[in-house]
Design a protein around this nucleic acid. Structure first.
Length: 217
DNA sequence: GTACAGATTGAG
DNA sequence: TCAATCTGTACT
């Protein structure tokens, strides 16, 4: 359940690995017109530049694409991979420390107001039962990957550098439930073999145990 | 300038 | 298994 409490700056200034875990169970609220698109975070990955070889900011690398990583925690770092898919990250740590957390999967939240579900009609939403659906549930496929959740939340380059603590169109809210440490699983990060085995084996990917919406990998 | 790979996805 | 095709890097 969503706790009507917006996440503030201090949250994003904690150690990055801690934030990656604390983000699990929190809610991304995306205001779109008169609607709210809401998703519960169920999978994240930490990237700790400049010493993390898998990070875009390895060795203090700074490019037109990644310079926003150097901002104070709480900003959106969004970029295009493979020329097609947007990837949503939140910056963490203090200014000039290029650390961030990638959001890899969400669980869509059915809002009692009108929530937008692309590719789903009202009948499908009504009939959806998250505990009884099969592998081919359309809703399940909607947000179980970093590129897909950006499409679901209608995010694009215009969110580059957006401040999550000030924005009127996207922010984070806390959960009423407390996530216990035994509900959190960790695993190696996805798609970073180029960084070498030392970094690609680091278990800096976190997800909620037994959640139906985590990404395939 | 050209070549190539990547924090991915969906179709076949 | 493969193609979609933007961004950054390593070369001519």
């Amino acid at each position: 359940m969503i706790k009507n409490k917006k996440i503030k700056r201090n949250f994003f200034l904690q150690p990055t690995l801690k934030i990656a875990k604390l983000l699990l169970g929190k809610y991304i609220i995306r205001k779109f017109g008169n609607n709210k698109i809401i998703g519960k975070i169920v999978e994240t990955e930490a990237y700790i530049g400049p010493y993390d070889r898998a990070s875009h900011a390895y060795n203090f690398k700074k490019t037109r694409r990644n310079h926003i990583e150097y901002l104070e925690g709480g900003h959106i770092y969004i970029y295009l991979v493979y020329g097609i898919h947007w990837q949503l990250n939140f910056t963490t740590a203090k200014k000039e420390k290029p650390e961030c957390v990638l959001i890899r999967a969400l669980e869509p939240v059915l809002n009692n107001k009108k929530t937008e579900y692309e590719n789903l009609n009202s009948k499908q939403i009504k009939n959806f039962n998250p505990t009884a659906d099969g592998q081919n549930s359309k809703l399940k496929k909607l947000t179980n990957g970093p590129g897909k959740l950006c499409k679901y939340l209608k995010l694009n380059k215009s969110f580059y550098g957006e401040d999550m603590t000030k924005s009127k169109r996207i922010w984070l809210e806390d959960s009423k439930e407390k996530i216990k440490s035994n509900q959190i699983k960790s695993a190696p990060r996805a798609g970073i073999d180029y960084a070498g085995s030392y970094w690609s084996k680091k278990k800096w990917r976190f997800y909620l145990k037994n959640n139906e919406f985590i990404s395939k990998h």
